[in-house]
Simulated assay, not measured.
Amino acid sequence: MSQTTQNGAISAPKKELLRGTAIAAIVAGVILAIAVLPAEYGIDPTGIGKKLGLTAMHNAAAATLPEAAPASVSATSATVAKPTAANPSAPARKPSTVAAPGEERAITIASAETAPYRVDTMEIILAPGKGLEVKTSLAKGATLIYSWKTTGGEVLNHDFHGEPLNAKHDEFESFILEDNVSESRGSLIAPFTGVHGWYWKNKNKTPVTVVLNASGFYTDIVRK
């Protein structure tokens, strides 16, 4: 039963206070085990949290959280670097979003080259009604730049294309196809290791001379 103090306040006996505290602690522990741990931390010691769907709430919340960036990545990084054969330990960095005003950013492809840089000029004579190819050997990711023109302004059909190493029959990719042109220029970052180059078809009734200027990181250049 309760007791009255000198100032008129009513106080409970110590046994009742202790019992009330113990009951409150037990109730809090039950709530912690059944509701708080499954919902907040995914810990379900009793299994009741799973039945009540509380652990599912935790899993759904965890799935929507963004992954933390690696400590070595700067939040303001504006460059992309990937490990290469020459530097396999190069750290990956956050993709760049830099773009010129009014432009949509293109995909950046950059790589260190192992083949020496070279420059070649070649004069090719195409017989009437005949075709001819000139090919370079490029490793995947290597760059080739070119320009060509006919000496007399004659027009040709042109196919700038590539074939992967050990290509099967008719396994090739055309990069630039042009009909009735007297000159062309372009560049390529090789999408695969193989031979890449030009095919011209002379539909004229007289021979046509083509002057080809090529440069880049190819290992050879041959006419076929």
Score class of each variant (00 low, 15 high):
Ser147Glu: 00
Glu178Val: 05
Lys149Pro: 00
Phe175Met: 08
Gly162Asn: 02
Asp170Glu: 13
Leu177Gln: 11
Val155Ile: 11
Thr143Tyr: 10
Ser182Glu: 07
His158Trp: 10
Asn180Gln: 03
Arg185Glu: 04
His161Cys: 00
His161Leu: 02
Phe175Trp: 12
Ile145Gln: 00
Ser174Cys: 10
Phe172Asn: 13
Arg185Asn: 05
Ile176Ser: 02
Thr151Gly: 11
Lys168Phe: 15
Asp159His: 05
Ser174Leu: 14
Tyr146Val: 00
Thr151Arg: 14
Glu173His: 10
Asn157Ile: 13
Glu173Ile: 12
Asn180Tyr: 05
Val155Tyr: 04
Asn166Cys: 06
Trp148Leu: 03
Ser174Asn: 10
Gly153Asn: 03
Asp170Tyr: 15
Asn180Glu: 09
Asp170Ile: 06
Gly153Glu: 06
Leu144Ile: 13
Tyr146Trp: 04
Ile145Ala: 05
Leu156Glu: 07
Glu183Thr: 04
Thr151Asp: 11
Val155Ser: 03
Leu144Asn: 05
Glu178Lys: 10
Gly162Ala: 08
Asn180His: 11
Glu154Asp: 14
His158Ser: 07
Phe172His: 10
Phe172Pro: 01
Glu178Ile: 04
Ile176Ala: 04
Ser174Val: 12
Leu165Ala: 09
Leu177Glu: 06
Ser147Tyr: 02
Asp170Trp: 11
Phe160Lys: 01
Glu171Ser: 14
Trp148Met: 04
Leu156Gly: 03
Thr150Ile: 12
Pro164Trp: 09
Phe175Ala: 09
Leu156Trp: 01
Gly162Cys: 02
Ile145Cys: 08
Glu183Leu: 07
Glu154Ile: 07
His169Gln: 14
Gly152Ala: 11
Leu165Pro: 08
Val155Thr: 10
Glu183Phe: 11
Glu173Ser: 15
Gly153Gln: 01
Ala167Ile: 02
Glu173Thr: 14
Ala167Asp: 09
Trp148Asp: 00
Leu156Val: 09
Ile145Arg: 03
Pro164Arg: 12
Thr150His: 12
Ile176His: 03
His161Gly: 00
Phe160Pro: 02
Thr143Arg: 09
Leu165His: 13
Thr150Glu: 11
Thr143Ile: 15
Gly153Cys: 05
Glu171Met: 11
Glu163Gln: 05
Ile176Tyr: 02
Phe172Ile: 13
Gly152Asp: 12
Phe172Gln: 09
Val181Tyr: 07
Asn180Phe: 03
Ser174Asp: 08
Phe175Arg: 14
Asn180Met: 03
Asp170Thr: 13
Glu183Val: 04
Asn180Ser: 08
Leu177Ala: 15
Asp170Gly: 08
Val155Cys: 03
Thr151Lys: 12
Trp148Pro: 02
Lys168Tyr: 14
Asp159Lys: 08
Val155Arg: 05
Asp159Gly: 10
His169Ser: 15
Ala167Phe: 05
Thr150Ala: 12
Ser174Phe: 09
Glu178His: 02
Gly152Gln: 09
Glu154Ala: 03
Asp179Glu: 15
Glu173Tyr: 05
Glu183Ile: 04
His158Cys: 01
Ile145Lys: 06
Glu183Arg: 06
Glu173Leu: 15
Lys168Ser: 08
Phe175Cys: 08
Asp179Val: 12
Glu154Cys: 03
Leu156Lys: 03
Asp159Glu: 10
Glu178Tyr: 08
